[in-house]
Simulated assay, not measured.
Amino acid sequence: METVWSLVIVILVVAAAGFIAWATDHHHDAYGIMLPVGAAVASACLTWIILVFAGTGYIAGLTWMPWVLPMAVGIAAAVCVPVLVGRRRTKRDVVALTEILRRS
Rank of each mutant, 00 (worst) to 15 (best):
V73Q: 03
I75V: 06
A30H: 12
D93N: 15
C45V: 14
R102L: 08
V95N: 03
R87I: 04
G86S: 09
D25Q: 10
G61E: 09
G38S: 10
K91H: 11
I50G: 01
R102I: 05
W48R: 04
L51M: 12
T98I: 08
W67N: 05
D25Y: 08
T98L: 11
T47S: 12
L84E: 06
V85P: 02
E99Q: 03
C45P: 00
A72I: 15
A72N: 05
A96P: 09
V37G: 02
T47F: 08
S43V: 06
A96W: 12
D93V: 01
R102T: 04
M71R: 10
L51E: 10
G57Y: 12
P66Q: 09
V95K: 15
A21E: 06
V79M: 05
A78C: 06
H28Q: 11
P36Q: 02
V52G: 03
I50S: 08
T90Q: 14
H26F: 08
T24F: 07
D25P: 07
G55M: 14
C45T: 13
W48C: 01
P36K: 00
V95G: 00
M65L: 14
R89E: 11
L101M: 12
W22G: 04
T98G: 09
L69H: 00
R87Q: 04
A39L: 00
C80Q: 00
A44L: 07
D25C: 06
A44W: 08
V85A: 14
V85W: 13
R92H: 10
G74Q: 02
T56P: 05
G38R: 02
V73F: 12
A54S: 09
G57E: 10
L84K: 03
L62P: 08
G55A: 02
P70M: 08
T56D: 11
G55Q: 15
K91G: 07
V52C: 06
I100L: 10
T47W: 15
T63A: 06
A42V: 08
L35F: 09
A60I: 12
P70S: 07
W48Y: 05
W22T: 01
L101S: 04
W22E: 04
R88S: 03
V37F: 00
V37C: 00
T24D: 10
A96N: 13
A44S: 09
A21Q: 03
L69C: 01
V94P: 06
M34S: 03
V37H: 03
L46D: 08
V94F: 12
R88H: 13
I59G: 01
H27N: 14
T63L: 11
L35C: 07
A40Q: 05
P66D: 04
I50E: 10
A44N: 03
A96T: 05
K91R: 15
Y58K: 09
A54Y: 11
P82A: 01
G74F: 02
K91C: 01
M65P: 01
A77V: 02
D29Q: 14
I33W: 05
V68G: 07
